[in-house]
Simulated scan of single mutants.
Amino acid sequence: MFPQLCRVARVVELNQEDRMEVGSSSNWMEWESMVKDHRVYAFLAQCCTSFVSKNCIQEAICASSTDNYPEESIINTLEAGDVVERRASYWSSKGHKDRRVPETLVYKLVSDLCVITELSIQPFQAFFQPGLPIYSATAVRFRMGHPKSPDFKSDLMDESCHDDEFNWTYTSQEFQMAQEKRLQKFKLPEPVLCIGGYLQIELLGRVQRQEMDGLYYICVSHVQVMGHSLAPALGVEGLDSSGNFVLKHDLQADNSQPGLPENKPCSSSTVHLERRVRTLEQILEMLRGNQIEYVFADEDEDESDEEFVF
């Protein structure tokens, strides 16, 4: 489902009681690890396929250029309206003679692990200029990933950041934009798992020339990123420049968001599998001539004959 998971270095369960026994064999320890991985990935798959979408942007981080800062800051794209407190609300790029020069906007999502399904962008219409021009891009493309440095911080004075500061693990196809004043929706072919919590919008090509200086600009009124956060039950740790990370599953976290599955540490089928392996190990020890200590199930446990057939 998500090729980005090939970078998982290991899986960790937080707040999980250690069920290892003294003297457990390497086979049993390996089986425990496999059961744990299966449990976490199964829960992750459920979370990724069953949820209610909402806007996942936490904050605006930086833009490749800003014409007039802070009046035309990227922060304005978080507001749904064209006018906020009687002032025009939009982000504007710097002007260029070459209409092919792209621009980028970078946002931080609500958590380090989000499933994204759809993005929406509304170009800005300059209602204060002759002819009411709309400064849309020709096309748009989306990238998701994380900063290369764990100490990444954008320059809050001018919102500047550079593409080489990020490791983008997903890049979408190009979507054509219309030169229309409306919230244009771009649905991804498949849900994308954003690992690291950062999203870049790449605005490709310029359409509208400004009459007063003859330069091409791109202006955006509003941006939405639709999907769902997998926090707090699932998270990542140790992201580095190579993109490797630890996948964390917090069994005690409250994942009560609508549509997400219940966060359970162990299913009954997993318990049965563990019993089978334990019984097999006891049989192997007997065959080797070793004396073992039998562990009997409680009388109220529901044991079936099938568990003892090998």
Rank of each mutant, 00 (worst) to 15 (best):
P191K: 11
T138G: 11
V225G: 01
L215M: 08
S65F: 05
E262M: 01
G259N: 07
R87L: 10
Q224N: 02
C48M: 15
Q179V: 08
D98N: 15
S73P: 11
F175C: 14
A88Y: 15
A297F: 02
L199M: 15
T66S: 04
P123N: 05
K148M: 07
V295P: 01
E301N: 06
D250L: 02
F142A: 09
F127M: 12
P232Y: 13
F127K: 04
S160L: 12
P123H: 08
E165S: 07
G196S: 13
Y135W: 14
K108H: 05
A297M: 03
S136Q: 05
N167Y: 07
I283T: 11
E59W: 06
A137K: 14
A126K: 12
A233E: 10
V12T: 03
E202G: 06
V101T: 13
Y135A: 02
P147C: 06
R275F: 03
Q179M: 08
T171A: 03
S242R: 08
Q252M: 04
I195W: 05
L215F: 09
C48N: 09
D37R: 05
V83Y: 04
S267T: 13
R100N: 10
E211F: 13
F296M: 09
F128I: 01
K108P: 00
L247Q: 02
E285L: 10
E299T: 03
M226E: 01
E299G: 05
K181V: 02
R276Q: 14
Y135L: 06
E274H: 07
L251R: 07
V225E: 01
S229W: 10
K54E: 15
E17P: 00
P130N: 08
T138L: 05
G145D: 14
E190T: 11
G23F: 13
R10I: 00
D18N: 15
